[in-house]
């Protein structure tokens, strides 16, 4: 797994930094001179996971490329909250074109740089889950298949948040959104849907595919850094809780992301050329319910009557992930 073990006990690789650590071993976010690719004054909601994830990713990419980076952004929350005229929060060369074309725009940028003999400048594209798994999937698949030299980052908050929390192809089963209301026999989003985009990306056989969350900064940074050592199409899928859309407290953004991983619902792994090469194992196993309870979008599973049938079905998804990716450190005691 990516991320260096640190010989350090009080606070180790889980924290952002520490005064006791060799600066070289601290996370990029601990650096007082970090790029702050997304700077203050943006209009993201309080506790926005996407704003946080974007800064984590871009700062890491800036670090890895020595600042030789251009960024393409799909339409979505991230774009809207960062660049309302007359202000922009970006401190990197940044281009927003459309909702569904970020992969292609980025591939075009990479091609232009190659054509100009400026390949040392790297291209990163970023989009929300809607821009990635739904409207942008055609372009993304093309980018993968051509193996264009782009790192594509999906900030997955599991619905169309910018337009008011409608269901996307990445919305998990049973979640309430504005278009999957919590009414009827099977409240919330239906089961058996959604797209496993990391798996789709892997099926393209591209050099690198990884998942990460805003709850594990070191892991995220290591993956971005590793991705930047490679050329060709790379895909990074980052889980970014959305307090507004998930109905979670703004202070719980990282906690929720952590529980997503620790419950097994969001497997964190990496793969090269279509094969899984590393898995971030569960450190402190959390129950699925612990994760769901923090989120208003699942409240209908507990009130007015507890829906054990649905909870069991969600739990089965977690168990499936745990089995599929070997998420437990000691599977024999599971």
């Amino acid at each position: 797994m990516s991320g260096q073990p640190v010989f350090f006990y009080q606070v180790g690789t889980f924290a952002v930094g520490n005064r006791l650590l060799d600066p070289a071993m601290r996370s990029g976010q601990a650096d007082p001179d970090r790029a702050n690719a997304l700077t203050s004054g943006h209009r993201a909601c309080q506790g926005c996971g996407e704003a946080l994830g974007a800064r984590y990713v871009l700062d890491a990419a800036m670090r890895a490329t020595g600042g030789r980076l251009v960024v393409v952004n799909a339409t979505g929350c991230l774009e809207v909250f960062s660049t309302p005229y007359p202000e922009t929060s970006w401190r990197v060369p940044w281009l927003h074109s459309l909702f569904g074309n970020a992969p292609a725009v980025a591939a075009g940028a990479a091609a232009a740089l190659r054509a100009q003999g400026r390949d040392e400048i790297r291209v990163l594209a970023q989009a929300g889950d809607g821009g990635t798994v739904d409207i942008g999937l055609g372009c993304l698949s093309g980018m993968f298949e051509r193996n264009d030299d782009v790192l594509f980052v999906c900030y997955d908050n599991e619905a169309y948040m910018n337009t008011g929390v409608q269901r996307s192809g990445a919305t998990p089963p049973a979640a309430r959104t504005a278009t999957t209301p919590a009414v009827g026999d099977r409240p919330g989003n239906r089961f058996g849907q959604g797209k496993d985009l990391p798996a789709i990306a892997m099926a393209h056989g591209i050099p690198y595919v990884a998942t990460a969350t805003v709850a594990d900064l070191r892991d995220l940074e290591a993956k971005v850094a590793h991705a930047m050592t490679l050329h060709g199409a790379r895909y990074l899928h980052v889980l970014v809780p959305c307090p507004l859309g998930w109905g979670s407290a703004s202070c719980d953004t990282i906690r929720v992301a952590r529980l997503a991983t620790e419950s097994g619902l969001f497997p964190v792994f990496e793969a090269e050329h279509g094969a899984v090469t590393g898995v971030r194992r569960i450190r402190r196993r959390a129950s699925v319910e612990e994760y769901l309870r923090l989120q208003g979008r699942y409240r209908h599973l507990f009130e007015p009557t507890r829906r054990d049938d649905v909870l069991d079905a969600i739990n089965a998804i977690a168990e499936h992930n745990i089995h599929r990716y070997g998420l437990l450190a000691h599977p024999e005691v599971a």
Partner: peptide, 12 residues
């Protein structure tokens, strides 16, 4: 000085 506050602030 673990830098967590510095790191996790979405608003820098």
């Amino acid at each position: 000085e673990c830098d967590n506050c510095y790191g996790v602030c979405p608003d820098n």
